[in-house]
Design a protein around this nucleic acid. Structure first.
Lengths: 339, 339
DNA sequence: CTGAAAGCGCTTACAG
DNA sequence: CTGAAAGCGCTTACAG
């Protein structure tokens, strides 16, 4: 442990060459410059000494840290943060970059501060990840390559990756109609832009069959279990309730199932409940299991990181500024044909 | 933007001093070495040029990166990852350190690889965070200061921070007994060590009142909503069911409420349900809201990071190797007096 | 084909 | 009280 790590100089000495030669060979810049025999000698020496270039020294020289910053608004509270972050971190590691994480805890002032701190640390690029889809205002770009995940800026100044929420809404409409439903209720609030887009898609899908939502019940505050519960109670106690309920997310859907259960109704026999998000530990494990749209959280993280590293490495990005990813439908037990 | 950032040399020139003097003043090492007037001149010049020392260059010189690595086993899937990670990252930032995150995705092989990669990157220390309490085997320490959060190694080779699960179990027992319950059922599995400890605490607490668990129902597989649902169905359909159910976590408790509801029972009127974890978006928003033990996830992250940075900075740590944190009881609506 | 030298930007013994 | 110099470990134009 006290033993000093080997440096390029040690390798050079052992191989009987200059440090230049060592650097060339280890960075594969030796094309036609180093004799094959010398090359072998250097490689052997490096291997024997367990030599790996010192990344800090290299960074100082190359002006690259092989490190990107990830700024997120709510890592602490979102059930999805993990997937997006995991996807981004995995991809970064595969491409030789470290990920430094900052959580602004929904305080925008901290975001600017985080960007500044990361720029000062000389990260190579910045990834902004929002935990619920939204349009962001000013992005503190601070002159670094920047990509947005699960959010976008109004003028598409930065490349972004987000789910195709409208398309997902259409998929839900097609699915419910295909199942035989014509009376579809909606539990929603437009607090978050994703809600508006999902409803827009649902409407478009229903419209193709000359249908429209039967009731649209506004959630009290937030997309929570209890808000879904309360809204469902109102819908089911109204007259001529719908046969299917489109819920803006899985927590609201869970609340809907809970309410129906409390009223002695069977899901999906008496009421089909459609969720959204395929939330970890919730959708698959509810009783009945929730049929839902699985948002591509991990893929968003991966694709966004790829776009960012492409920019960092100067690879041109021919994709659209705002890239929309599709969501797969996950069929479980909470949706069935109407009775 | 094309403008080069100011360096210490620029500041020195502007202030008419040497780079040595600049470094001394900016690092507060000028005690009795630099004339006050000179000091002022240097500070003014630095301010004017917006000079901040280049962290990479500093790292190369000081052999410190002001960066710690956080290795976690399941950031992607745990609802708690965020709080722990957020607490740790916040504290690190306050103390001038960046946090590089690695997710091993429950593949132990990746953990060793992550530790190796982080050592290579010259992080100053390593924090291991497990998403459910467990005893870890070999910790790839790789010779760096290392602290464990929400886990510990058998021989306490590294400092660790974890919740006092036994104590929490006792608290639950006291609470339920104080509420008037004498027939307490338990929904548990010993898949995770926390379950065993919680039950141990509950037993100890009940024993003080000469009571013991009335039924102990083993969960099918995992601490999930559906497992809690199935176990509760078995308990409630048995003869002479308990008046209160101690659930090993909030998801199991949610399943218990769901099952009771499906049987037409009222919670807490007919059955009190006690959860564990105060899980984000679940405990507070279930109907009824879950009474539960709030594990100190954020505090664990903060305390673990503090212990780590103390070690990195050579501050002696007088605390116990294995530090146990208390969990507060959060009272909501799912527990009441028995009828 | 190969190596001596400069330089990335900083900190810190050391000499005055 | 102050500054010249070495050195952290690397990469890369440049000269041979």
């Amino acid at each position: 442990m006290a033993r000093r790590e080997a440096t390029a100089a040690d390798v050079a000495k052992k191989a009987g060459v200059s440090r230049t030669a060592v650097s060339f060979v280890l960075n594969d810049k030796d094309a036609g410059n180093i004799a094959p025999a010398t090359r072998e000698r250097i490689l052997a020496a490096a291997q024997e000494l367990g030599y790996v270039p010192h990344p800090v020294a290299r960074s100082l020289r190359t002006q690259r840290t092989q490190m990107v910053g990830l700024i997120t608004d709510a890592i602490a509270t979102s059930p999805f943060a993990g997937q997006l972050l995991g996807g981004a971190a995995d991809r970064a590691r595969e491409r030789g970059h470290l990920v430094a994480v900052f959580d602004s805890q929904e305080r925008p002032a901290l975001e600017a501060q985080a960007a500044e701190e990361l720029r000062y640390r000389r990260v190579d690029g910045l990834l902004y990840a929002a935990m619920s889809l939204r349009e962001v205002g000013e992005v503190p770009g601070v002159g670094l390559p920047t990509v947005l995940a699960n959010c976008y800026d109004a003028d598409d100044a930065h490349p972004s990756v987000a789910p195709d929420e409208v398309r997902a809404g259409e998929t839900v409409a097609d699915f419910l109609v295909g199942m035989g439903h014509r009376d579809v209720g909606v539990l929603i609030s437009d607090l978050v832009v994703a809600g508006t887009l999902r409803l827009q898609g649902l409407r478009a899908g229903l419209a193709r069959e000359s249908l429209q939502p039967k009731v649209i019940e506004h959630l009290d505050d937030g997309w929570t279990i209890d808000a879904g519960y309360a809204a469902t109670m109102r819908v089911l106690q109204g007259e001529d309730p719908p046969t299917a309920l489109f819920c803006v997310n899985d927590r609201v859907a869970a609340g809907a199932v809970l309410a129906a259960t409390r009223l002695g109704l069977d899901v999906p026999g008496d009421l089909s409940v459609m969720g959204f998000d395929d939330q970890e530990e919730l959708a698959a494990n509810f009783v009945p299991g929730l049929t839902t749209m699985a948002l591509p959280h991990r893929a968003m993280g991966e694709v966004a990181m790829d776009r960012l590293l492409d920019a960092v490495e100067g690879i041109s990005d021919p994709g659209p500024r705002r890239l929309l990813l599709e969501s797969p439908l996950v069929q479980r037990e909470s949706v069935g044909p109407p009775r």
